[in-house]
Structures are given as C-alpha cells and as structure tokens.
C-alpha cells in the first residue's frame, strides 16, 4: 500500500514538471545556494561513516542525510 502511495505521489509530482511554473528564485540568484558549504552532505564518505556509528548505537534508522536528490539550484 505504501509503495502505491509513494508511486502515485511521484507520478503527480512528475506530471507537474511539464507545467510552466515561474521559478521564484531565478538562476542568477542561486550563487549562494551553489556554494559547496550549502551541501547537505559535503563529504559523503565521512557522513556515511557517522551514520553507520549512530545506527550501531541507536534503534532508529532511515531518512538519513545523503538520501534524495538535488536542490534544483544549478
């Protein structure tokens, strides 16, 4: 059921990709967002290791940093 919900959500959002939405942050306004210090995971190897440590010591799991795609700020 959850898979179907997820797929439906993605489908709806994907269909929006074709819509002519005016970006409220213009490409020339995205210099700060493109700065490497704005990355959610600047160093994937070190971040994955720390996630690994937390997962070994805690019961919680999932939805860690590094999952998902970009911010659309290029």
């Amino acid at each position: 059921m959850q898979v179907i919900t997820l797929s439906a959500t993605l489908l709806v959002l994907t269909s929006l990709a074709g819509c002519a939405v005016e970006p409220w942050v213009k490409p020339y306004e995205r210099a700060k967002l493109a700065d490497p210090i704005m990355s959610f995971s600047r160093n994937p190897v070190a971040d994955s290791y720390l996630n690994h440590v937390y997962q070994a010591r805690e019961a919680a799991r999932g939805a860690e940093v590094g999952q998902g795609g970009g911010c659309g700020c290029n």
Binding site: S41, Q67, G68, G70, C71, N74
Partner: peptide, 24 residues
C-alpha cells in the same frame, strides 16, 4: 557490537548521495 539490522541504511545513503545541485 555492529548493529546488523541497520546496515541496509548505510548502504542506501551511500548509493543515493546525489549532489546538492540538480540535474548534475
């Protein structure tokens, strides 16, 4: 000492560590 049940997550986070910038 190493929590096996959570290993999948580490693997997943490695695999989808996409860049912050989109379409790149």
């Amino acid at each position: 000492e190493i929590e096996k049940t959570n290993r999948l997550l580490l693997i997943g986070s490695f695999a989808v560590a996409l860049p912050v910038l989109a379409a790149q």
